[in-house]
């Protein structure tokens, strides 16, 4: 089959060209741009200087935004885990005929535009939203509780976006566990809970950690929930990038911010891959 050697490369050529030309090179450009200067007139001057990075570290406002991003991402990961493990376990153990239907249902949010999922919380948390409406009707409160435009509302948006990723990652990992292992544990005298704790839980950890990484990375790169559901104090790093690039057209500084975000996530993903391997994530997305 020597003559076939060129075939895979011919088949790959269009995709590789597209990714190289439209992703690899542009991302390199972002890094290059981050060293450029911004002219007072708004134009960009090619240069090699660290002014944009110095600006980032000169004012604690910018690093604090990164710290907030990491904190919110961590909160999202923990909450996704708490909210997601039990439903994933339910899918694994259930023998209900409804299982395929319930699985499709949990994936449905993937097919609904992120902007709609985000704004849908305004109908729930707003001053005239569902919760305030019910509470006022029931006489629990007289004036609407302010539930929008704070970190809690941002977390609701983030969780709704990311929970299906976590549930599916855990579920795929659980599904790979041989059920006879828990049976064996139980026949050796383990209680249901002990069998779960000693057998199922440890074996599901690859999915748990893959889900955590995916949720963390996706949270760090998103700006929609803080923008729509958050207040002035809830901006994350991606919001700042959006404002600098789309709002004030400060390309060099926007590029520096993007580079910092990319480097940060790069370190996290690299470390994860080094110790745990990243293929689990791609496996789940199939």
């Amino acid at each position: 089959m020597k003559s076939d050697k060129w075939k895979p490369w011919a088949l790959l050529a269009p995709s590789l060209t597209a990714v190289f030309l439209l992703l690899v090179i542009p991302v390199c450009f972002v890094v290059v741009y981050s060293f450029w200067l911004r002219a007072p007139s708004g134009g960009d001057i090619p240069a090699f200087q660290f002014g944009n990075y110095a600006k980032f570290f000169a004012d604690f406002f910018y690093p604090s935004l990164v710290i907030r991003t990491l904190r919110v991402a961590l909160e999202t990961v923990v909450l996704c885990l708490v909210m997601g493990y039990i439903p994933a376990y339910f899918f694994y153990r259930t023998e209900s005929k409804l299982k395929p239907f319930l699985m499709i249902l949990i994936m449905l949010p993937f097919w609904i535009s992120f902007i709609i999922r985000t704004l849908s919380w305004i109908n729930i948390l707003g001053d005239t939203g569902l919760i305030n409406h019910v509470f006022i009707k029931a006489g629990v409160i007289d004036n609407p509780l302010p539930m929008l435009y704070n970190e809690g509302a941002v977390l609701m948006g983030l969780l709704q976006y990311l929970l299906p990723f976590m549930i599916l990652n855990i579920y795929v990992s659980l599904e790979g566990i041989d059920k006879s292992l828990t049976e064996a544990a139980k026949s050796l005298g383990c209680t249901e809970w002990q069998a779960f704790k000693e057998v199922t839980l440890p074996l599901s950890l690859p999915g748990v950690s893959a889900g955590c990484l995916l949720v963390f990375v996706l949270t760090c790169g998103t700006y929609l929930p803080p923008m729509i559901l958050g207040g002035p104090g809830n901006d994350m790093i991606a919001n700042l990038i959006f404002k600098r690039i789309v709002g004030t057209l400060d390309w060099p500084f926007g590029s520096a911010l993007s580079t910092i975000l990319l480097a940060l996530l790069g370190v996290i993903v690299y470390t994860y891959n080094r110790y745990l391997g990243i293929n689990q994530i791609f496996k789940t997305l199939q």
């Binding site: 590789l16 992703l23 090179i25 542009p26 972002v30 990038i241 959006f242 993007s258 990319l262």
Partner: peptide, 24 residues
């Protein structure tokens, strides 16, 4: 390696993707 390379856009934040293509 190539398979991973072609899948990396999933792990690159969309914000950075947006900025990158715009700057290009």
């Amino acid at each position: 390696t190539l398979n991973t390379l072609l899948l990396t856009p999933i792990m690159i934040p969309e914000v950075v993707l947006g900025v990158a293509l715009l700057i290009f």
